[in-house]
């Protein structure tokens, strides 16, 4: 079954890349290991958003809320209960997906912009609760210094842990992307009305997509806690949600790996431009405008288009 979708040609560079990522930590400075790990977490988050945004065509305006819910769930289980660690690992994504189910259940009834608006209000509601419920979440201060088991004690250990989880998630997401469900979802993105006419219950598929995407967002949230050992309300704030929205567009939201590239670029910009100037959002804004004017398909999407023109992708000839 795997042979069907992973052809050797595209598989080799991915494996090489993965091996490079595996051997990097001992040989590069600690700071870079940390930055790459941040890129991993952000990539997963952006790609989970893209499942509904780029592949599903839904205006998921407040995806960050589910990321935050995953992170908070994990953090609260670790700090407020005596439950074992793995319960937290499982609970983070599951709670995020449940919240996704609840939010999505209301949202899929609405069209486009109203969908986005309702989601912003529901997401903001979650943010407001986390922000104000001092006794549970420590409100504005957040929770810091969350204890991790010894297996995840060093930065390199958490790096590897995050990398492996990311790899598993990517394979899962790719399978879904290429599955009948994924194809149907993309058909819904292109033309929901026609989809209904060929017998697809659009809302139910959209809801399923939201639940799956929010599950992965929850995984990203858990990984964030593993890396940073803290949670704070900004994780749930809408500004972050818009930022990941941008990452998807930056990388190319109709592609599979594009958002990952977008996330990496954004994190790199924030980190390295941030060293020279505190006005990095200004630069992000300028880049975004350039993108809108010159690369509306995103960076990755642009390269794929180029490849198609030269006819070098075997993707098209296979069928």
């Amino acid at each position: 079954m795997f042979r069907n979708i992973f052809n050797l040609k595209s598989f080799v560079p991915i494996v090489v890349f993965f091996i490079v990522l595996l051997i990097l930590p001992p040989i590069i400075p600690r700071f870079y290991t940390y930055i790459i790990a941040v890129m991993f977490v952000t990539s997963l988050l952006a790609m989970s958003l893209n499942m509904v945004l780029g592949h599903g065509g839904m205006f998921q305006f407040h995806h960050g809320a589910f990321y935050g819910v995953g992170a908070y769930t994990f953090a609260l289980i670790l700090t407020k209960t005596t439950l074992p660690m793995w319960v937290g690992f499982a609970a983070g994504p599951i709670v995020a997906a449940l919240v996704g189910l609840l939010v999505g259940w209301f949202c899929v009834r609405l069209n486009r912009l109203y969908f986005g608006m309702l989601q912003i209000s529901l997401g903001s509601l979650i943010w407001a609760i986390a922000f104000r419920w001092y006794s549970l979440t420590s409100g504005d201060d957040g929770i810091h210094g969350i204890p991790m088991p010894s297996i995840l004690s060093s930065l390199n250990c958490s790096y590897y842990f995050i990398l492996i989880v990311l790899a598993i998630c990517l394979v899962g997401m790719y399978l879904i992307f290429k599955s009948p469900f994924g194809t149907t979802l993309q058909a819904i993105r292109d033309n929901p009305q026609r989809c209904e006419a060929v017998g697809v219950n659009v809302r139910r598929h959209q809801l399923a997509a939201i639940v799956i995407a929010t599950f992965f967002a929850g995984v990203a949230g858990v990984l964030f806690v593993v890396l940073e050992r803290s949670v704070f309300p900004d994780l749930l704030f809408w500004v972050l949600s818009l930022e990941i929205f941008i990452m998807c567009l930056l990388g190319g939201w109709f592609t599979f790996l594009g958002p990952m590239l977008g996330a990496a670029i954004t994190v790199a910009l924030r980190t390295f431009v941030g060293i020279y100037t505190e006005y990095w959002t200004l630069i992000l804004g300028v880049i975004l405008i350039l993108l809108i004017f010159f690369l509306p398909e995103g960076v990755f999407g642009y390269f794929i288009e180029k490849f198609k023109e030269r006819g070098t992708t075997d993707m098209l000839e296979e069928k």
Binding site: I246, T281, G285, L288, I292
Partner: peptide, 11 residues
């Protein structure tokens, strides 16, 4: 998105 970029820049 343009208005969002504008927000980032103006901010």
């Amino acid at each position: 998105l343009f208005t969002f970029a504008l927000m980032l820049i103006l901010g």
